[in-house]
Design a protein around this nucleic acid. Structure first.
Length: 307
RNA sequence: GGUACCAUAGCUCAGUAGGUAGAGCAAUGGACUGAAAAUCCAUGUGUCCCUGGUUCGAUCCCAGGUGGUACCA
């Protein structure tokens, strides 16, 4: 086996509704693979229809394909990139130790890149002294302080006092401990991107939304709310959970919910593609494959690249 | 059939006291290192329904069409 082809990971990425899970599981069944999901919402238990878990896809020809990082935390929890990176490499080593082949599959660009680019992320303990010194400061002042550490690209970082303080805590820790290095396993990934024509993608998204609503997605949201998750937290998860919660609490009519959600999913798919294009520009070699080509054809192509 | 009102961007609509036009939404491109399905930035879009008239000049005024809505019959 040549050095160039000694891949130790396959990545299947693509926008929502491109059929990447099916491709990944079918591939996994051929190479003794196990799936490591790269989906920031499928980590949550009981959020099934709205995140498109499709767990039946993980049974190929009657055989269960093992999967990781799905259903690992409770709905309402705030999982994050740092935890993802840690969890990913744990699953990766675990799969390796069994002599199976890791197949990463998902559409959360930042999670994929945090892993492939070895984003520097270390465990940051809480800093009671710092917290004490920040006590009583306004959100505006905290925003000032955080922006002295890094460019703020979004408001999510300074949405609440709690998050702003944690952000400052993390940045302070990095600054005070520049020597800390994290040892992460070398990755030599074969990256497959599922490409889907824009119009077809929109058509599939709308169709899938309708069928999920028919399958009881509204009840799923209602029961999560009933279990005690605060509507605001569910709204923060975005897309299905945002618009269905707004509908469930009477802020949107059914038609408004449907139309706005449909548009929001289309916009999300576009943003995913923007991320993948940026990855390519920054040097990642993504092998794009047409979603309309047969699975057999595409899997043969991938197997050729792996051999 | 009669009367009134309307016809402008992909959609909903504003506007031009006559000098060829603009908001919101959508769309498109981009950013993104501890909630990322989040959050944020940028950018267009036009036979101003058709035909004629008045005018230096009409999307705007006038006449006639066509289509729509409402009311009356």
């Amino acid at each position: 086996m040549s050095k160039k082809n000694s891949y130790n990971l396959v990545v299947v990425l693509g926008p929502t509704a491109s059929g990447k899970t099916t491709l990944a599981t079918k591939l996994a069944s051929k190479i003794q693979g196990e799936i490591i999901s790269a989906d920031s919402r499928q980590v949550y238990r009981n959020m099934d229809l709205g995140t498109g878990k499709d767990l039946e896809d993980y049974i190929v020809d009657g055989v269960q394909i093992p999967y990781h990082l799905i259903d690992i935390v409770d709905a309402g929890y705030k999982y994050n990139v740092y935890e993802y990176q840690t969890d990913f490499f744990r699953a990766f080593e675990d799969i390796k130790s069994r002599n199976h082949f890791p197949v990463m599959c998902g559409g959360t660009g930042m999670y994929i890149e945090a892993v492939l680019s070895h984003f520097k992320m270390v465990h940051v303990p809480s800093n009671p002294e710092l917290r004490k010194s920040l006590e009583g400061k306004s959100l505006g002042e905290l925003t000032q302080i955080l922006s002295s550490f890094k460019t703020l690209h979004n408001k999510t970082d300074v949405d609440t006092v709690k998050r702003a303080v944690r952000g400052i805590e993390i940045e302070t820790y990095y600054k005070d401990n520049p020597e800390i290095e994290v040892e992460l396993p070398e990755l030599n990934p074969l990256i497959i991107g599922v490409k889907i024509d824009r119009d077809l993608r929109r058509e599939k998204i709308t169709k899938r939304l309708k069928s999920r609503l028919d399958e009881g997605m509204i009840d799923e949201v209602k029961s999560i709310l009933k279990s005690g998750v605060h509507p605001d937290d569910l709204i923060y998860y975005g897309l299905e959970y945002k618009y269905l919660t707004l509908y469930a609490i009477g802020k949107l009519s059914y038609q408004e919910m449907f139309d706005q959600l449909n548009i929001a999913i289309h916009q999300f798919a576009k943003r995913q593609m923007t991320w993948f294009r940026k990855m390519e520009r920054s040097g990642f070699d993504i092998h794009w494959m047409e979603a309309t080509d047969s699975y057999d054809h595409r899997i043969n192509e991938i197997l050729k690249m792996l051999s």
